[in-house]
Design a protein around this nucleic acid. Structure first.
Length: 208
DNA sequence: CGTTCGATGCACT
DNA sequence: GTGCATCGAACGT
């Protein structure tokens, strides 16, 4: 399990260090987990793409709270997206989890993804089950009820399994129309579960 | 391979 | 009323 201090740091460092950690959701239906292979940083009110850009509101309150909590919200009226809140309390920032490599509970993920879906979706490869921020929350059964769960201790948590630190690359964030110039998306170079086109991944530049 | 577009709920102006 | 931190189907190349 990661400590509160892990999240109480510069958001870009937290995003980098979350790659290779394991997101777990343990529910009555069973435990599902996956290795984080893609994430994006959203940092402060000056970041036009961050939900804190308009200042404090009812919806974005979790961003201003203590680090290490989950910030879950509904987007496009259809998908839930999950973030890990970062930086000190009062400093609104978070890391959006964008893709996982499925680890435990793969059949449970498949069942959740299949609900109300077409045959094509029911027959997805394992690495497609948690590919994309809306897909991974569906596979893990995350919805608004998990907003503000404590990622350091609750049934929705992020664990350190001591896996080797993956090589990563940085790119522009995906799916936004403002603040597009910052390269605040980070992803594992060698993972087949990263979202976006394969071509984009193979044209990786800045490693570290 | 690529692009376009509808679904759908709610916070915010 | 407007605009999303998306997804997948449909259709073009």
């Amino acid at each position: 399990m990661l400590s509160r201090d892990f999240y109480n740091r510069a958001t870009l460092k937290v995003a980098r260090d979350l790659i290779g950690k394991v997101l777990v959701h343990d529910t009555r239906a069973g435990l599902a987990s996956g290795i984080i292979v893609e994430a994006e940083a959203y940092i402060g009110e000056s970041d036009k793409a961050c939900h804190a850009a308009p200042g404090p509101t009812a919806r974005n309150a979790p961003l201003y709270g203590p680090p290490g909590m989950a910030y879950v919200y509904l987007n496009y009226g259809i998908h839930y997206l999950v973030n890990a809140v970062t930086e000190a309390e009062g400093w609104p920032a978070a890391v959006l989890i964008r893709a996982l490599e499925p680890r435990d509970g793969i059949e449970l993920m498949r069942r959740r993804r299949a609900a109300g879906s077409t045959r094509r979706v029911r027959e997805l490869a394992v690495n497609d089950l948690c590919r994309g921020p809306g897909n991974l929350t569906k596979a893990l059964g995350i919805h608004l009820r998990q907003n503000l769960k404590d990622l350091t201790s609750s049934e929705l948590r992020i664990e350190d399994h001591g896996l080797p630190k993956p090589s990563v690359a940085w790119s522009r964030r995906i799916g936004i129309n403002v603040a597009v110039e910052q390269e605040w998306r980070v992803y594992a170079l060698d993972s087949d579960a990263v979202s976006g086109s394969r071509r984009q991944a193979s044209m990786a530049n800045a490693q570290c």
